[in-house]
Design a protein around this nucleic acid. Sequence first.
RNA 1: GCCGGGGUAGCUCAGUGGUAGAGCAGAUGAUUCGUAAUCAUCAGGCCGUGGGUUCAACUCCCAUCCUCGGCUCCA
Length: 637
Amino acid sequence: MTSSLEISIQDTSKTYRPGITAGDILKEIPRKNTSEIIAAQLNGKPIDLFAPITESGKLDFVSVHSAKGLEILRHSTSHVMAQAVKELFPDVKVTIGPAIEDGFYYDFDSPRPFTPEDLERIESRMKEIIKSRLPFRKASLPREEAIQFFRELGENYKIELIDSIADEEVSMYSQGNFTDLCRGPHIPGSGTIRAFKLTKVAGAYWRGDEHNRMLQRIYGTAFASKDELKRYLELLEEAKKRDHRKLGKELDLFSISEEAGPGMIIWHPKGAMLRYLVEEFERKEHLKRGYQMVVGPQILKRELWEKSGHFDNYRENMYFTTVDETDYGIKPMNCLSHMIIYKSRIRSYRDLPIRYFELGTVHRHEKSGVLHGLLRVRQFTQDDAHILCAPDQLNSEILGIINFVKDVMGIFGFEYSMELSTRPEKSIGSDEDWQRATTALEKALQDLDCEYEINEGDGAFYGPKIDIKLKDALARSWQCATIQCDFTLPERFGLTYVDSDGSRKRPVMIHRVILGAVERFLGVLIEHYSGAFPLWLAPVQVIVLTITDRTDAYAVEIAEKLKEQDVRVELDLRNEKIGFKIREARNLKVPYMVILGDKELENQLVAVRKRGQDLTVSMDVLQFIDSLRHEIESRSF
RNA sequence: GCCGGGGUAGCUCAGUGGUAGAGCAGAUGAUUCGUAAUCAUCAGGCCGUGGGUUCAACUCCCAUCCUCGGCUCCA
């Protein structure tokens, strides 16, 4: 160790004796809000306030209000939770407990599952630990000693974790009588935790592998202040009101019937209209971009699925049936008939690229525990296309698709994230082809300056893919668009084209969807708009409300005029007060109300009330129709 | 599929080993009313399904289906 340390804070540099801690240095500095400082960073590396500094460098302090600070606070709260659990349930074994987005969790191997009542007990115990202001302490141990330590405690998961760490020394953190293997850093003491809450219990496999033992995971969250925690919990409540399953019922869009079967969506008139509108939009956008519409059968012979590789690689997700002693597979993907269309005649290089588009309905046997409203179903319709092109067209085709995705997401106002998924273990095709395809996808992402993450081993069995993910109301992300390269299917199906020199060449295939599954997309869309759809997508665009039955005839006349102009209009002639009708129309989130009373009848006008505004504007019906048309065309929200 | 919660009227939810409740929605009648709920009356339930325990089960036990939150998997 050096005899002195050179530490710079902001622009000033100072010499310290070794063994000094960031906490000691903090005390010397006159500054406000030192109580907000919960950790530090030395040369950008997070460190504890209480652990001795071992090297010279640039020191920054981490506030609990920063993202990094919050992460440390949450991680430390998970340790306090583990301590509480160990105290209450001594036979529980601890595993891991990281901070995650919006909170933390800790996984325990418990002889019996935790109940919601246990959660309350754990919370109370945590509060006591926080009140007793236990300091966090750090120690570095040679790995053998650490293993010995955990062996004596019977904490075999910790031993397994140490085994996977290469370092000669491992760090341990303690507060009170609880010691955990941990990289740190941590808050100075349990007293620093001001606001936390345990939110849910769930099963989780050890190391995320379903072949391993199922552990008990407790989720929680912590914030710098009680107010922030309260605000977060309120936000969660608000988000739950946007849940598409709740809105689907309230707005009468769709249902899922136990009688009909799980994971099967039944679209009611308003939901079916919404769906129709999105599909019509899709068809037009595809035709604009040089796609051709095709339609294939719902079931295809089993031999064809064997040929494509689906039978070997995707069988567990497929449904099968037998017709006249011949086995058929219900399609889980749309590619096969598209291949057959391509093969139906000889193709020239002049024909390429060929882009087949199908709103294809597929069935997949999804495990029962994963079904989730519209977002995870067993029957769904993809806005699917297969592009067959020459190898040198691959890049421009991928660029075209990414731009297509960008355009469409822009129209709906979605923010999205992109991922590049590489070769999984269970897959077909040569390494060279996988490499070529992965490179092509990555190059396109880079050409368009897209931000993306790499998802190692998460590709389809036939090729790598770019996935575009959208978030639901509760910030869970769902894969929607995907772009997948495939060299295998053209090979398996013997697809060729005649090149300019007269030789037969193998085309490359791209599988791609823009919305993904229409069901899933609509689920996310409902949450995105909280059910208040922009005019062009609203199943009911205008509702005509009468004040007394003296205006019934006039209301019918106005509704007819709107209908003639393709406005989706409903009429409310019920014998109810206008306040009641307005309340109901509001709750149904209809974009426009037209309110008709004696005044409107007399002046031959309509009183228009726009969603979200509490005032009505009187105008001529033609003027109203004109403004509607304008808003629909602009697809504005 | 796995772990844990939950299934009571169309919806949202109370309830209890001893004849099943509310609000909203629905039907009927009254009210003709100007921007977020008019009043009254009526009707509505195999308490998810199948077994078991009990004199008696919506309630306790077992199984099963569906659903919710996670995990794994996925568009």
